[in-house]
Structure formats: structure tokens, C-alpha cells
Amino acid sequence: MIKHLRSAADLDAETATLILDTAAEMAALSGREVKKLPALRGRTVVNLFYEDSTRTRISFEAAAKRLSADVINFSAKGSSVSKGESLKDTALTLQAMGADAVVIRHSASGAPHRLANWVDGSVVNAGDGTHEHPTQALLDAYTMRSRLGRLDGLKVAIVGDVLHSRVARSNVLLLTTLGAQVTVVGPPTLIPLDVAAALSEKTQVSFDLDAVLPDSDVVMMLRVQTERMQDSYFPSAREYSRRYGLDVPRLHKMPEHAIVMHPGPMNRGMEIAPEVADSPRSTIVEQVANGVSVRMAVLYLLLGGK
């Protein structure tokens, strides 16, 4: 088993599939009355969050606690982090506390890679800057597999601000590893110039959402921050929404079986219409539930053994 989960690129197809299979078992077990499992008893998991992300932190916390690990939440607010302590000094503190795993959320790309140099335990990337969010990609893949039964050969459109999206990066890497055909869609300003060469040669690029929809099994909408507008990535929220928003007419262009995903939090009315977000085709609530099972699987596989 791998030691760290810093990037979806850390996962080969076999390991990724093992995580998804393990997550399925974890999901089956979480239906029971006693939800706690003893696998990580006596292990310490630190949630080191430099960015506010209540949903991700809670998901990791629930996952660790269901496996009986001790959880320490170390957040940027109300700790020495806000007093300007360096990541390295924080790492040495966590090391001294005997952290077996550190789950890190950070605004700087690559912070988990740096952290892994300074702690003995496992490092799990819970989102770093505009780099990656590998557990999000795993839960997305899990959700696709449980809804559609497979990942191999699946056609997935990832739509929106691919340039700044850690979710997109991790999903492109993981989904192509697992045999899906990924197309990134968005205005050219928000699609990195070398996306295929950088992530996977199999990645396709399109600037035309309407052309991609009829041939997609999964349409994953990314959050688009309105401040991108000020930086001339696109002229206005209205124009963005018209060209790349998923509204009801566009939903009808998708095949009957196709699903709509969103990593959240959503800008309703911007990249996704409320009717689409709430439709039965949308997996948005499922994604959240699956997050706990997937994170349990990751923590178990990283920490369960020797």
C-alpha cells in the first residue's frame, strides 16, 4: 500500500480500485447500528486545516472516528497557525504528538508534499491550492461506479474552471487511470494550455458544452468563482452561465442514463440551474454521503496495516 495520498497520481488502477472496493464495504458496514469499527484504535489522525472547509473536515473526522482513531482538529483559526507559525514547525509539533496521519487542507499547492518531508506519518491531501483534491476524485469515481456500474469506458465531461480546480486535476488523473474517457470543457481562458500533456494524453478538450453533452455519461460541473470575472477570464456571470451553465434544456440534451455531479459548494444559477441541482439525475447529496465511506477506506488502507 502507498504511504501518502498527496495526488491522484499516487494511485495506480489496482490501488484505486482497492480503495473503491474497500469503500463499498465501509458503506455496507455504516448501515449498522454500531457504526464504529475498531480498526484504527489507538491511532491518531490530525486534521490540519489552513482553509475553512467544514464539509471536508467533518467528512474526514467522521471517517476517522468510525474507525476508532483519535482525532485532533488543528485549524488555522484559534491556533498557533494564525500566529504565523511555519508549516515546518507545525509539522514538528504534530510529529512530537505522535500523529499517525495528517490530513491537510492548504491554500498553497504542494503543501502536502512539503509536509510529507517533515512528518513520519501518512499525509493525506484534503485539497491543496489549485493543485489536487484526491479524496474528492475518489468519492466522485465511487459515485459514478455505484450509479452507472462501471468506470472503464465511461465518458465524463468536466465543465468549468479547470485551470484553478483541484477537483478537476484529481478527477482527470484518477478517471483516466481507471479507464474513463475525460473531456474538459470550458472557456479557453479557464482550460490550461497543456492540459492533456500535463495530466493524461487521453484527455480531450472542448470549448463547446452543447456538443459534448449528448455523448456524456457523466457531466461534472465545477464551481466557478465570480472573482474570475474581474480577472478577465470571462466577461460576465450571465455570459458564462449562457455558454457553460447546466440548465434544464441542456440537461435534456444528455442521454437518459447520464448523471450530473458537482463537488460543491454550488453557485446555483451560475454554473448549475437549481432545477438541475435538485433533479433525480443529480448525485450531489450522494457524493457527500459517499465521501465518508471513501475517506474511511483511505484511512484504513493507509493506517490499518504495518
Binding site: S109, G110, D128, G129, T130, L193, D194, A197, A198
Partner: peptide, 15 residues
């Protein structure tokens, strides 16, 4: 900007 704009910056998520 953090590094050369190209394949590697795209992969690393650095501006």
C-alpha cells in the same frame, strides 16, 4: 506566477 507556465505548472497547480 510561481513557475514556468507549461505542462509541469499545469500538473502541479502552480500559477
Amino acid at each position: 506566477a510561481q513557475m514556468h507556465e507549461g505542462e509541469v505548472s499545469t500538473r502541479l497547480g502552480l500559477t
